[in-house]
């Protein structure tokens, strides 16, 4: 059950849009920065395959400029 954290860089002025897009995925939790176009993102998925699919969906978001991985944790299924 992977838990990963990322820094999601928004296109200039598009932080709010990016936030909303990320929040539409149930597996995402976000904290926006107050003073930068940047969002701290944590994903929580049941397995590596779903993680990969989610990542592809995130990377397709228009308001996203860059997604950089910070850390990955893997916890046992139960």
């Amino acid at each position: 059950m992977p838990v990963k954290s990322y820094i999601a860089h928004a296109m200039t002025g598009k932080k709010e849009e990016l936030m909303q897009a990320l929040l539409s995925f149930e597996q995402c939790e976000v904290i926006p920065a107050e003073n930068q176009d940047v969002v701290a993102l944590v994903t929580d998925t049941p397995n590596d395959m779903e993680e990969e699919i989610l990542k592809q969906k995130i990377e397709a978001i228009q308001s996203l400029k860059l997604l950089s991985l910070v850390s990955g944790f893997n916890t046992p299924q139960n």
Partner: peptide, 27 residues
């Protein structure tokens, strides 16, 4: 434990962001 791990993951992201952007603050 899972909540804890997610919290840790979020903190790592915020810490990493702090090293990229001076003066960054989170909501």
């Amino acid at each position: 434990r899972r909540t804890f791990i997610k919290k840790m993951a979020m903190l790592s992201a915020m810490t990493a962001a702090a090293s990229m952007f001076p003066g960054i603050v989170f909501a």
